[in-house]
């Protein structure tokens, strides 16, 4: 069975309907467990004190915020090339989730910055980039909402996602150029031997898995809703005409 089998909306509804309880259940177990692990069972950092616990919500949310935008770009590309409706609707369903993740990353970052940098908001490159990312999400969601015809909306938002991805990457580098920041470098990396202590990164990994599963579950719910809404619209039009 190839990946494209999912592209048939009826088959997608059947498979996603079967998978949804499992994904949602797994998310409902792993995310709270990861958060509880991070919150209750990790020691304080010798420099950052208890604020180190914020990475368990901040880092996964930030990762999801960026990767969901990437997913929207890929799904838009698939829609433009292969005209699979499920792909376009998945991109639409992902956007509000990505915007929420961006907000979480920004707010938790501000709460972290308050005691650590002495200021809740600094015009730091990373913070600014996330602010910009949020604006990209808002523009994308607004364009979906503004256009009535669903295929036209899918096409136009895909064009926006394509062009936007180019300028989002440019903004990232422009913002780096614009200011050297307070934000620390990446905490997790594969090629460095000096990583954070397993005491921290094991629960962090659990939280990342939990956020990912949550996203997957919400994406399935959202995409199923969009498919139903499209069908409802088609039925209404058929009855009116």
């Amino acid at each position: 069975m190839s990946l494209w089998e999912f592209a048939n909306p009826a088959r997608f509804m059947r498979i996603s309907g079967a998978a949804l309880p499992w994904v949602a259940g797994l998310a409902a177990v792993i995310l709270p467990a990861g958060l509880a692990w991070g919150f209750f069972l990790t020691p304080d950092d010798y420099r950052q004190g208890s604020t180190v616990k914020i990475i368990f919500v901040h880092v996964p949310a930030a990762m999801m915020a960026i990767n969901i935008y990437g997913m929207i770009v890929v799904a838009s590309l698939i829609w433009l090339i292969r005209r699979h409706h499920v792909s376009a609707l998945a991109a639409r369903a992902a956007a509000p989730i990505g915007a929420t993740m961006t907000v979480i990353a920004l707010l938790t970052g501000a709460l972290w910055g308050q005691p650590m940098w002495g200021t809740a908001w600094a015009w730091d490159p990373r913070l600014t980039s996330f602010f910009i990312l949020f604006l990209f999400y808002v523009g994308y969601i607004a364009l979906w909402a503004a256009i009535e015809d669903p295929d036209k909306a899918a096409d136009l938002t895909s064009v926006l996602a394509m062009v936007g991805s180019v300028f989002a990457v440019l903004s990232r580098y422009a913002v780096n150029f614009w200011s050297q920041g307070l934000h620390q470098g990446a905490t997790l990396s594969i090629d460095r031997d000096q990583n954070i202590d397993p005491v921290f990164w094991l629960p962090l990994l659990a939280c990342i898995a939990g956020f990912f599963l949550l996203f997957l579950a919400l994406l399935l719910v959202g995409t199923r809703t969009e498919i139903r809404a499209r069908r409802a619209r088609a039925l209404q039009l058929a009855m009116a005409g």
Binding site: L135, G139, V163, F167, L170, S171, A174, F177, W178
Partner: peptide, 12 residues
């Protein structure tokens, strides 16, 4: 709302 974020690199 859509275009201003695309202007940011030029602005910077």
């Amino acid at each position: 709302v859509m275009v201003l974020p695309l202007y940011l690199p030029s602005l910077i």
